[in-house]
Design a protein around this nucleic acid. Structure first.
Lengths: 228, 228
DNA sequence: TGACGTGTACGATCTAGTTCGTATAATTGC
DNA sequence: GCAATTATACGAACTAGATCGTACACGTCA
């Protein structure tokens, strides 16, 4: 078991190094490990942790099931890696944006738009978060690196709020976490519940026109929520 | 297969009749069918469609696996029944409420509060909707009876909006579906994402104080969203 | 007697994980 | 500089156990 971990860890760095060489040989940019991860992301997002089949993942890669266990040790290990990967890709959306250089209202608008666009263009991420919640979040809670990043997001949000309150544009009785919740809920729900909401209310949330409309609407809703 | 369906259909009405008798005999109100449905609801909500185990469901009832297949034909059939059951329990929340007798703002407030309270007290429902969305809503789309009810909800909402616009309290450029989306998103997300959101932002959304705070906050957010 | 309701035991299949073995590249010893 | 050894990357086939579903019972009530 200990040897197993060590082997996997080594394999990881090796796989990293390998990219260049192998890509020359095969004319591909993806190492086996990365390919497995990409396919597994889709599979877990579409079928859930228990619904995903290791064999199905293996078949869709150019490599074999053996390699999944070689690199990730177990189905659960692969799932964890997928989760960590998609969460780390967000890279604290806010930190890509120099919110401090924007006026509070403009900063909030940009944060909402970024969140909206990210969620809309990453349905796999949304789906995986859903899967994780169905599983009572057993695995997210262990992603310490990710959690740290999220606390930064809150701090950034808080600074924007503080400036808005100081300038008299925002009300003072809203916390950063509240705003995050409102923004996340409005952006996330559209994507996560597109199938049930779409079916029950007979509308297509993926329609570009609807999407544009809701993008504006959510920005507006959040600003109204914050306005003094 | 046709006979199978017929048997199940008969079984259903039979089971219905049986309730009284059996409850006298065993001193219980639940028929086998209802007991299976209740246990399955929990199981599917906690583990998803593929994660749920028929044997596990059977073990948790006072009856056997045979009866699951007797009444529901298959695991999928049981899942469909569970979904239909939880969706029909909502019974169009709004229709329980005589919105027409309330002033527009008050009507919206009550609708939000009802939605909030329903979602908070039915985490299994939320979880099942999640499961269904991970599965691309293959089954909701077939629940025609449910879909009809939801279109009524929209009509009720529209009438409230119309009155609000007429009285000058609400703005005119918001559709019933938009409001439904905003309300649903804000109420649903708190419950559906309580594990991931809680872990990442290090807070407990189930905390009663937090819940009370958010209940008020969401009402407020929706009203601010609608205000002319 | 015959339809309904129920339990037990079993089978066919699926699936996570493993075993054994190979090829290629890296490293070491001389 | 080259042979020997070792480590990494990979594949095919297999196994043990899980899991859905069924065959065949038996009882019970009208």
């Amino acid at each position: 078991m200990t040897t197993g971990s060590a082997a996997a860890a080594k394999g990881r760095s090796r796989a990293g190094k390998r990219v260049g060489r192998k890509s020359e040989r095969r004319g591909e940019t993806e190492s086996s490990r990365e390919e497995i991860l990409a396919v597994a992301t889709e599979e877990f997002a579409q079928r859930g942790l228990s619904g995903a089949r290791v064999d199905a993942i293996a078949e869709r890669t150019r490599t074999s099931k053996r390699m999944i266990y070689y690199y990730f040790e177990s189905k659960e290990g692969l799932y964890k890696a997928v989760l960590e990967h998609v969460y780390s890709q967000i890279r604290s959306i806010e930190s890509h944006l120099d919110v401090d250089s924007l006026a509070p209202i403009e900063a909030v608008r940009r944060i909402v738009e970024l969140t909206f666009d990210y969620d809309e263009s990453h349905p796999h991420f949304i789906s995986l978060v859903n899967v994780e919640n169905v599983n009572h979040g057993q695995f997210v809670s262990k992603l310490v690196a990710i959690r740290k990043r999220y606390s930064n997001i809150l701090q950034l949000m808080q600074s924007v709020l503080d400036r808005g309150v100081a300038s008299g544009q925002f009300r003072a009785d809203v916390s950063a976490i509240d705003v995050r919740l409102v923004i996340a809920a409005l952006c996330f729900f559209r994507v996560s519940n597109r199938y049930t909401f779409g079916a029950l209310f007979d509308c297509d949330l993926a329609d570009p026109q609807m999407r544009r409309h809701h993008r504006q609407m959510i920005v507006d809703a959040v600003l109204r929520f914050l306005r003094a």
